[in-house]
Each structure stands twice: as C-alpha cells, then as structure tokens.
Design a protein around this nucleic acid. Structure first.
Lengths: 197, 197
DNA sequence: GTTATTGTGTACCGTGTAGTACAATTATCC
DNA sequence: GGATAATTGTACTACACGGTACACAATAAC
C-alpha cells in the first residue's frame, strides 16, 4: 500500500460509470459535473485519478473496447467467414440492446456532432472505426485465401457493408429500437451472404 | 417594402449557411459565434431574423428536409417497391457524398451526442427519423396491397432495414467514405431484394 | 423636414464550463 | 511520535456560452 491518504473510491468502478455517462451523452455532451456526480467523487479527485476530460475519455474508450465492444475481436476469430458475419450481427444486436448499459454504441454515439474544439477526439474515434473495418476486411481476405469465400463481392466491400449495417443499427438502437426490431434488421442484412455455403 | 431600415443580408442565403454549419457540427457543437461568423451578420441581427438557437435550428431543419433531403419523398413516389429501394439507395449515396455540402446527413449528425439540456431537440430529431421510417413502411405496405411485393419480409422490417443502411451510410460518409465506397455498400444492400422481380 | 419604424453594432449580463490552488485530512515510513 | 506523501473538499480562476439592452443608422410615411 502506498504512502499517503488512501483513495476513497474504486478507480475501476468509477471508470465504468464514466463509460456509461459518455455512452449516454457523447463526449461534448458530458460535463465534468456530470462525471463527478455519476462517479460520486469531487473534481480534484477526478483530475488526480484520470487526468483531464480528454484523458478520461480515452481511458473510457479503452475500457469500452475491452469490455462491451470485446465481442468484435472475438467474432473475428470464428472459423469461417459466414460464422464471422453471423456472430458479428448477432452479438451486435445483443450488445446494442443490452439493458445492462446504455443503448447504442459509444464510438458511434460520440463520433458525430462534435464542435470544432474537440477535433482530436473526433479523429481518434474515426481512426477507431476505420481500424474496425480494416480488421473485418483482413479477416475476409484471409477467408478468401483459404477458399472460404463465395466470390460475389470483394472482402473490402463486404467489410464496409457489414460495418455500415452495424453503424446503422447503433443509430437505431440509440433511437430506441427494440431487440426484436434489430434482430429483424440483422436477419435481412444476412441475406447478402449467398444462402447455404 | 416595409418601413424602417432595410435588412443588409438575404435571410434565405443566411439560412442555407446555417444549415451547412449545423450539418458539419451538429446542434450542440455549433455556437452562436460560429453562426454569426458563417452568416456574416452579428448577433442581434441573427436573433431578430431567426429567434434563438433552437428556433434557428428548427428552421434549418425544415430547409434541409425540403432541400437536400427532398429526394426521400420523391423516391417514395416511384411506381414499384423495387424502384423505391433502388432510387432511395442511389439518391442517398449521391446526397451523402455530394461535394456541394458537408458529408453525411444533418439529421443523423445532430441526433447523437446530445447533452441533457437539449433533450427537446433530440426528441424532435428522433421523431423525424421515425416518421421517415414510417413513410417507407407505408409505401411498402401499399406495394404489398398492390401485389408489388415478393413476400419474403414484412414491409415494416424491410423499411427498418433500409433506414438502417441509410443511417450507416450517413455515418460512413461523415467519417470520410468516398462515393465509390458508398456505392459498393448500396450495391450489397440491394441484394436483400429478390433478384429479378 | 419630422416622426415612426426597423436593422445594426457594441457592450454587456448571468450562467456554466474546464481546470486548479490550497488547506485540511489520513495514511505510511522511520 | 514526527516527517512525509497522497487524497479530499472548498473555493477560486479564466473563459466561452446563450441571450439582450441600448445607442445609432437608415429607410418609409406624413
């Protein structure tokens, strides 16, 4: 145990709450008082533990990627391209409509509607989305190399299409779409894949 | 000509510029100085002509619906369901990647990432999106009544799927996706419709 | 020309924001 | 027990925000 007065809150639990606040309100829509209220700590404690607002947002983003968004890398490890798509769609629906956390996707939620000052945050979110699409694309290219690809579309186009549907579902979920509605959307989205591989 | 000193700017042209600013930065991301700078007028003139920020945003929204987003009602007047889908996808790609205005969709852009204070604006945008989906759904229900429907999916599901793809393309466009990339996405999205009707 | 009416420009108000200085508190280290 | 180190709570700074009061300018009506 380090010297000095011990911290009176759990930084991990506090970070989880910060994730939820950013998730609901976006980056610019979240104020420091919003955060201190949700975390149950006061301002200097927040700055001491997490740095300034941008720094805290980055930490929240990392935690989000490893937690609620962790289904994406997991889905990419499925053995076939078809299974990757199936899993990605199904897990996205589950995550986006999970009553345990806010609706929608933190990355999509926070990425849009940014003023001029938080340009760097927007760029970072854009990079995150781009790297997600690239990961899906690479997985599909691997599938094609392995003969696990029907050949209709290019892996890059397919990856972008899938990402587009996922973003759209995130927007729908943020707007209050139910799990059933999202499942119906996912079922239609699946149709781009040639039936029975 | 009304009595008093004449206005030194064109309100319609100014509103167009306001649309562009909100389009790029969202509702909360746009400040009054942003607007007065873009419109080339000073604050009291802006308030006299358009009311407060919310009032100006509503006027901008109406202008957006009648202008750049006017392709939606036009597409719904196509004679067949298949033509509606084709037109909606093609026109969306064109609009979302039109270099004449900001990338993406004002409604999607402004809808997410709202703080607690602008709840009413968020609700209004959510309503706008919902009414768009409803309009597509009604058009599809009409198609089914007219025998112009392949029967695979329910019109409601199909409408929601289409809207989801459009939202996703809006997110992609806002993130810098090219017209070609969007066209490839639209081509894949079209595949849900049974080939050759 | 005089007056009423409307738009413009400056300067302001109250509020909320991100971020911090500082004293008080609570622990470890020696 | 005294020095040291870290956290806490209060109070503050500087600034940006949305919105407006008010004096001045430019037009129409008379």
């Amino acid at each position: 145990m380090p010297a000095g007065r011990p911290r009176e809150f759990d930084p991990d639990a506090a970070l989880d709450r910060a994730v939820a606040v950013f998730w609901r309100q976006g980056y610019e829509g979240t104020t420091i008082p919003d955060l201190t209220a949700a975390l149950g700590i006061n301002r200097p404690s927040l700055y001491a533990a997490f740095g300034n607002k941008q720094s805290l947002f980055r930490k929240a983003l990392a935690r989000y990627s490893a937690g609620p968004a962790g289904f994406i890398p997991r889905a990419l490890r499925e053995p076939t391209a078809r299974a990757v798509i199936e899993t990605l769609l199904r897990s996205s629906v589950e995550m986006l409509s999970d009553p345990k956390h806010p609706r929608g996707c933190l990355v999509v939620q926070a990425a849009l509607a940014c003023g001029a000052e938080s340009e760097s945050v927007r760029k970072e979110l854009e990079g995150l989305r781009a790297s997600g699409v690239a990961a899906i694309r690479k997985r599909f290219e691997r599938a094609r190399r392995e003969g696990d690809w029907p050949g209709d579309a290019s892996p890059a186009d397919m990856a972008r299409y899938l990402a587009t549907v996922l973003y759209g579902m995130a927007v729908q979920a943020a707007g209050g779409a139910s799990r059933k509605e999202l499942q119906a959307v996912a079922a239609l989205a699946r149709k781009v894949w040639p039936i029975k591989k």
